[in-house]
Design a protein around this nucleic acid. Structure first.
Lengths: 216, 216, 216, 216
DNA sequence: TATGAATGAGAGTTCATTCAT
DNA sequence: CATGAATGAACTCTCATTCAT
């Protein structure tokens, strides 16, 4: 099935924005690469700004949906956390360009759009923090850790991947995710949580990951 | 002592860029707020692009310098790592606006500048990775972890702070750093390394951090 | 009887043009309000320009027709002039939006259309001037007045009404017309003409018009 | 003394707007004819819209000033009215292109500007109406005339001149003004007022105006 | 050195018009 | 006959940069 003009504009612009930044890409450039015209662009989007919003919204909505599914489909804090972390594999394989735009160009969203997006970002953060808190109550996660900082530490570790992960590089997102899960679980679980993590096979026992060269 | 025109331009622009993005701030705006003129601007900077480079360079050079001092002034992997992590406290308190610009506007550096900056970013990453590798060789850090991914995980966790840390917010960078060090050490040390970390008092024993509300 | 698409477009556009000016109204707006489509528009009119011409032509043709009838159906200069002035009552009640467009948007007619319209405007002016001249010859109107300037003075007084007359305002066109006829006749008739005007009851004897607030 | 860029833009644009309408003239056209650049234009005017406002304001402010001077410098209603009418001679000789723009392009002023202009238009109208009312009270003008309609009739007669008066045509504004004053005075004065008008030499005794061809 | 009026290439956006369905 | 997605020329406006003073 042929892709619609609107879809072609969206996909083209994401890749261009990722590479050159929102202001480094003109509408002219987008429509040329997407095989349409300025008229076609403005027939589908009210403004370049609205296109930027669309990119933001598609991504954050997808991430929230996956995380919420992970939450409800798992019972224990360790398994919920593992599942949420795992859901990021798909996100990065499919949405890496979205993420770059999401985290680097949001300054250029207009205020109205910015608010909508921020509310969704908050929903995601709060869900993760809730899992941490539930784990502390159940005795799976160390109680001396402040859940808000831990939440942001985890989000930072994961999100930062967009800065260095290369889809055609030597590391797969599965490998990276395995290491992240291991690091996060080691850093927050109690002995009780450690046993479950082991049973769920969420920890690295032997190194198997190729060493490569990365740029921050 | 009165600040020079060049310094005033630099400081003004960093704050404006942080808030509105590089393309959301005009030279006109900068010179008005900095109390100079277009002529004054171009007398001190060859272009707006060069100013952006200057901001990048001031920041990354400072970070590298501090990290390298931390490296040579400490002997063991655990203490080296602790010191490097600790050096970020100062960075965030002083350079938060620089970091935002550094990580969100580098797409707009011209290619020549971009290369210079990337080389410095690499130097920093490689230094941290070297500490991890030395710790694995000495038996302080778990050998099954791939050092490159661990390096990026740590960098991500730390850097992400610029997205949510607020200088006049409820958390101090000291508190945040204490938690980060605890998390990182728990996630990578062996039993041997754990003992040293305890002696160096790098681990949280009892929670003392206020719980607050954050936005991602 | 249902109105045709063409009629709906014409009526809708006149009101929109009157309010927002020819360039302040898009074809999109017209077709939406008229309940048709772009295709429907261009099926009925070759261009937006032609629609503007149509509006001009409908109006000026109507005015000429009425004036010429007034001319031939009356015998004396005083009665001819009164009848022509009177025919404007109907014009304003029915055609006020046409008049606004006619006098404010004709700059945007293309040259070919502009010429056709100008010829019809001339016919109207010449008819009125002819009445003035006949009145001077018959001794009803003062001979020292230059008929061309008098003609334009009358036309100006009448036409200007479109700038301030409000259909749902406090004054009716009948009241206004009565005053205009009084003013015009007083200003141009001789004693002989005055007698006839009195007999035809074209002069105000007692004021009966409500005083109201108007904007130029 | 050389004219400033701002003045050259103003004068050029008035003539272009008069001929082709506000929307028939591009900023590009204005700056080319005025011998400057787009940058020069926007350095002096915030927008094309603001330029349109400037044209409106220069004109209406001038007209009000002259009318108010005429009012205070004359004592009787007949002389006040004559002086105000007379002040239009200068207006038309100097400001004819302004008037055209003023009366045909005001639909394109933005709402804020439109309000400011409308208030000034009102001031002018009210001043004229006041003279009429004072004349009725003093017994110089016929009491059966509604002053508001008379005011608008006079304004219409005068203003309409911009539609047909040609600076290099066969009629001078002095000649036209003489006729207008005669018509207006004949149409509104009582016998008492008539005597004063005669003494002030405001009435045509013998025709001296050349007959010419005009277009409405 | 310092100023700010002037530049002009290039940006985002509009909209009358076309035409395959 | 009717539709509305698509076109692209032309528009208003921006802003980094220059340079006479």
């Amino acid at each position: 099935m042929k892709k619609s003009v609107k879809e072609r504009i969206l996909e083209t612009s994401i890749h261009l924005f990722q590479e050159h930044g929102y202001h480094g890409v003109t509408v002219e450039k987008i429509v040329t690469e997407a095989g349409t015209s300025k008229g076609g662009f403005y027939h589908n989007y009210k403004s370049k700004d609205e296109l930027l919003y669309e990119i933001h919204d598609v991504f954050i909505s997808y991430v929230i949906e996956k995380a919420e599914i992970s939450y409800v489909e798992n019972k224990t804090p360790v398994s919920k956390l593992s599942a949420i972390l795992h859901s990021f594999i798909k996100v990065f394989d499919m949405y890496k360009p979205y993420i770059t735009v999401f985290y680097e160009e949001s300054a250029y969203l207009n205020d109205e759009f910015k608010q909508i997006i921020n509310e969704k970002r908050d929903r995601y953060r709060k869900l993760l923090q809730k899992v941490i808190e539930e784990g502390q109550e159940s005795g799976d996660f160390r109680k001396e850790l402040p859940p808000n900082i831990v939440t942001m530490a985890i989000i930072g570790m994961i999100n930062w991947t967009y800065k260095w992960f290369k889809q055609d590089g030597p590391l797969t997102m599965e490998e990276i995710t395995a290491v992240f899960k291991d690091l996060i679980l080691h850093s927050i679980v109690t002995e009780k949580g450690f046993e479950e993590a082991k049973h769920l096979n969420q920890l690295l026992s032997f190194a198997g990951v190729i060493q490569t060269d990365l740029s921050v």
